[in-house]
């Protein structure tokens, strides 16, 4: 049973479903945080959300605007320092899933959040690494959520900030990276998964109502569709209600206080 929804809602719901109940998830801010909290509020109430600012087991009632909002600390099982979160918990191998966003992504799910154009003379200076390089290498596996466009899914990255499968095949394993790497990339058009041998991202499921040509046109490399490519199950009424309530609570909470600059 489903109802009309936006492509962004379908993306968020599809991403949330990837997080299994009980998983320990290192959560990036923005779309990953929305999806991870939707999972926690629907099918995965025992998911443990870890934020790089130090909260472990955060259960925020509204989405954080920044990675270190007070409600993450107040609702967490414990709050540790930033060195500890990276040293003991991420590098220590305690994280099942890393949930990341991306400014740019290539066919092997390598991520750029650093610069567009030459590094020393950039066309666009992006925010940079944050925790992503070590999340992408040390988490047991990685989920990426990103809006689908030719500007985002590109033929070649100007800078590799966080690694996926490097040049494909066994390159990631040969480099000695511990985690499995990206297992799915969820966009507002489809779900991409790495080919088991080449590790090139392929369309594994298409969101309802999206044409194959739309995906081809919005991808910066000649995108392949897997042989068993199916359709994403549409968001349920419950998933959409929980998501919309979460976003409404968030807007109400972040929009009321504060001073103008």
């Amino acid at each position: 049973m489903s109802q009309a929804c936006t492509s962004e809602e379908t993306m968020t719901v599809a991403a949330a479903r990837m997080l299994r109940d009980g998983a320990v998830c290192f959560v990036g801010i923005g779309l990953p945080s929305t999806a991870a909290n939707l999972a926690r509020l629907t099918h995965a109430p025992n998911a443990v959300l870890v934020y790089e600012s130090g909260p472990i087991g955060a259960k925020p009632s509204v989405l954080p605007l920044s990675i270190g909002d007070g409600n993450l600390a107040e609702t967490a099982d414990t709050v540790v320092s930033t060195p500890e979160i990276f040293r003991y918990w991420l590098q220590g191998g305690r994280i099942d899933v890393g949930f990341l966003g991306a400014a740019q992504l290539d066919r092997f799910a390598n991520i750029n959040t650093t610069v567009v154009g030459p590094y020393h003379n950039p066309k666009v200076r992006l925010p940079g690494a944050g925790g992503a390089p070590e999340i992408s290498s040390s988490a047991g596996e990685v989920l990426v959520i990103v809006k689908h466009s030719r500007r985002t899914l590109v033929e070649k990255l100007d800078f590799i900030t966080s690694v996926g499968f490097l040049t494909g095949g066994g390159a990631r394993e040969r480099a000695g990276l511990l985690g499995k790497g990206p297992v799915a990339v969820i966009t507002d058009l489809c779900i991409l998964r790495p080919h088991p041998v080449t590790r090139e991202l392929q369309v594994a499921a298409i969101h309802p109502g999206v044409a194959r040509d739309t995906i081809v046109d919005a991808t910066g490399w000649p995108i392949q569709f897997s042989d068993d490519c199916g359709e994403t199950q549409a968001p349920t009424i419950n998933e959409l209600e929980v998501l919309r309530e979460l976003l409404a609570r968030t807007a109400a909470a972040h929009g009321v206080s504060g001073e103008a600059a």
Binding site: F86, R87, Q91, T114, Y119, H120, A129, P133, E134, S137, S138, F159, I160, T161, S162, V163, L166, A171, R172, A175, G176, L177, L178
Partner: peptide, 13 residues
Amino acid sequence: VLRGYTGSDFARV
């Protein structure tokens, strides 16, 4: 000392 940066472009710049 940390387990980090493997495969990325940071050391290049």
